[in-house]
Nucleic acid binder design. Structure first.
Length: 563
RNA sequence: GUGCCCGUAGCUCAGUUGGAUAGAGCGUCAGCUUGCGGAGCUGAAGGUCGUACGUUCGAAUCGUAUCGGGCAUACCA
């Protein structure tokens, strides 16, 4: 915020004049609610040792040299310098900073990012396991665009690998009609086969495992039946995936499956073997040593039987992306359990000379409460929760609570808002507890609470649509101070996003703003106020509505017309 | 064994390069409505910040040790 940046510079100048110190960090923090002032700096305490004076003395010396103007200074506690800013000064700031794209900036101008999400697996129903890759990936796209980046989005379909062999084997034994198989059948087959394979291994047999491997080999060799089955399963899956993604309000420009990088990946592996960067073992497998990056586990690039694995297709994919899109940044949205794999992958990328910045946008996994009442990892063995079920349950609950006169469209927006907000409310590294009561929460720290604040503002603006605003230059904006401060803080929150993608800061901001607005109209009349007050307050409400809606938009949450 | 993440109120989580009396939400208890939308607002109770040392004027935050939980640790993704 310009006004505080100016003050910061002024304080730095004063410190340099007084003590000859020019490298001290001056930052402003909020002041505890029961203490006078709006912003606070602890710079006097930081200087105490270096200058050899008591913090409070330093604080006094500093504020004696500062110009008042819009500010009122005071010293509190061990030596904090507290700054009170007039509401009018804040309103002036917002007026100066306001544009049609308030909150956005151009820091990423000319830069290109490739954002990979939600990367669902083929032949498997969309489960809640892919909720986070989708919501986080979508938000990453939105916040980068807000920072001026061009973002290319790609759904990296899991359409190759051992799972196909498992499905083909299981499908053949299931007796299900090829033309009638559904994505749910395929999901069940996978779960059943996984269990059968485990039992088989325990019994010391390998008939099923061999058959699965055989199918995999057939597919890579373009056996007609294998190709036909794979294509069919994929189409069923893609249709299902599109339906669910559409309900979640996310989409991608590209859907490049792993399967299309099998050949190019293998070729690249051979190339780097020839160049001596990768090493072929006696058993035929290929590895990439990463000791120079402090990683003592080499990365397996090709299986000993010559087939591709994730690393192979990821290599092919990375090379493709660099060649076709030349991105400055590649973002991959997956769970934290893959941290080590991506550490290896990114180190390998450096080793082969790629300069693109790779970022693993990771997050904690989804837990559930087990039968014993303890928190445990959600896994397919225990039965996954399907994304469609989650959405249906959420909509049902919203409908029960909001009544019948809300449109289906609005019901869906509220349901998705609830689900997404619960994903963003905590730091993404924190695991999510799958607890319907929490995910579908409609009150408190929730999506609907924030959406409601927006709907309420729009209602007020609508009701005052006929009112002709008068000049409010004399209005003091003291009642609006808390909200103005939040609105002024928004651009910096957006600007900080590319550094770590801490999306929960946006969710926290949206909640705080919504809460502050609820407090505001609890005690501040708008429609019934004087013309000057009414004009000023409507001016601010319109801006608060814009900012809150924008903050939620960055998280992929829409505002219903009515709720 | 090694690496990464985590441990804060009954529960779910914040806590800004170390700062004021550690904060929200849910739940509990007590209030507030002839009101622009009360799905809200106000207040109360609830804490040895896993534990122990250390650094510092000052530690939930930094360091060391330790306990507990999760994940990973080449032929899954």
């Amino acid at each position: 915020m310009a006004i505080m940046d100016n003050l910061k510079a002024q304080i730095k100048g004063v410190i340099n004049d007084l003590y000859g110190v020019d490298d001290v960090v001056v930052d402003f923090a909020d002041v505890p609610s029961d203490i006078e002032g709006d912003y606070s700096t602890n710079v006097a305490m930081r200087l105490a040792r270096q200058v050899g004076k008591a913090p409070r003395t330093i604080a006094e010396e500093i504020i004696a040299r500062l110009e008042g103007g819009d500010f009122k200074f005071s010293i509190a506690g061990p030596g904090f310098i507290n700054v009170a800013v007039s509401g009018k000064a804040l309103q002036k700031q917002l007026t100066d900073a306001w544009t049609d794209h308030y909150g956005d900036n151009e820091s990423g101008k000319g830069k290109v990012a490739l954002d990979e999400y939600p990367s669902t697996n083929m032949a498997k129903p969309y489960s809640v396991g892919h909720l986070r890759p989708g919501t986080q990936g979508w938000a990453a796209k939105k916040v980068l665009e807000a920072n001026g980046w061009k973002v290319i989005t790609d759904n990296h379909l899991g359409d190759v690998g051992t799972p196909f062999g498992i499905w083909a084997t299981g499908f053949k034994r299931s007796g299900i009609d090829f033309d009638k198989v559904t994505v749910y059948d395929l999901g069940n087959i996978y779960i059943q086969m996984k269990a059968d394979l485990k039992a088989e291994e325990k019994a010391g047999k390998h008939e099923l495992a061999d058959e699965a491997q055989e199918w995999l080999k057939k597919l890579e060799n373009k056996d007609p039946e294998a190709v036909k089955m794979s294509k069919h399963f994929n189409q069923i899956s893609i249709n299902h995936m599109h339906e669910v993604m559409s309900r979640l309000g996310i989409s991608t420009e590209y859907e490049m499956g792993e399967s299309q990088f099998v050949e190019s990946g293998k070729k690249a592996v051979e190339k780097y073997v020839a160049e001596g960067i990768f090493k072929r073992n006696e058993d035929g497998s290929v590895i990439c040593r990463l000791d120079e990056f402090g990683i003592d586990v080499p990365m397996l690039m090709l299986k000993s039987n010559g087939t591709a694995l994730y690393a192979t297709t990821d290599l092919g994919c990375m090379l493709y992306r660099v060649e076709h899109f030349n991105p400055d940044l590649i973002i991959i949205n997956t769970g934290m359990e893959q941290n080590f794999y991506f550490e290896q992958l990114f180190a390998m990328a450096k080793k082969i000379g790629l300069t693109v910045q790779n970022y693993h946008l990771n997050f904690g996994m989804i837990d559930q409460i087990g039968p014993d009442g303890k928190r445990e990892k959600m896994s397919s063995r225990k039965g996954v929760v399907l994304m469609e079920e989650l959405l249906n349950d959420a909509e049902k609950r919203v409908r029960e609570n909001f009544g019948a006169d809300i449109s289906d469209e609005d019901i869906a927006k509220i349901a998705v808002g609830a689900i997404k907000f619960s994903d963003f409310v905590a730091d993404r590294k924190t695991g999510i507890l799958y607890d319907p009561d929490k995910i579908f929460a409609l009150t408190g720290q929730s999506g609907p609470f924030c959406q409601y604040a927006c709907v309420r503002m729009r209602r007020i603006l609508e009701k005052n649509a006929d009112f002709t605003a008068v000049d409010f230059a004399d209005y003091d904006f003291e009642a609006e101070k808390d909200i103005l401060r939040l609105l002024l803080a928004f651009p910096a929150i957006v600007a900080a996003m590319p550094d770590g993608f801490l999306m929960h800061k946006i969710a926290g901001f949206a909640f705080e703003l919504a809460q502050e607005l609820n407090r505001y109209y609890e005690k501040t009349p708008i429609s019934s106020a004087s013309d000057v007050e009414r004009s000023a307050r409507l001016w601010m409400i319109a801006r608060a509505d814009f900012v809150l809606a924008r903050a939620l938009d960055l998280l992929g949450i829409e505002i219903p017309a009515k709720m």
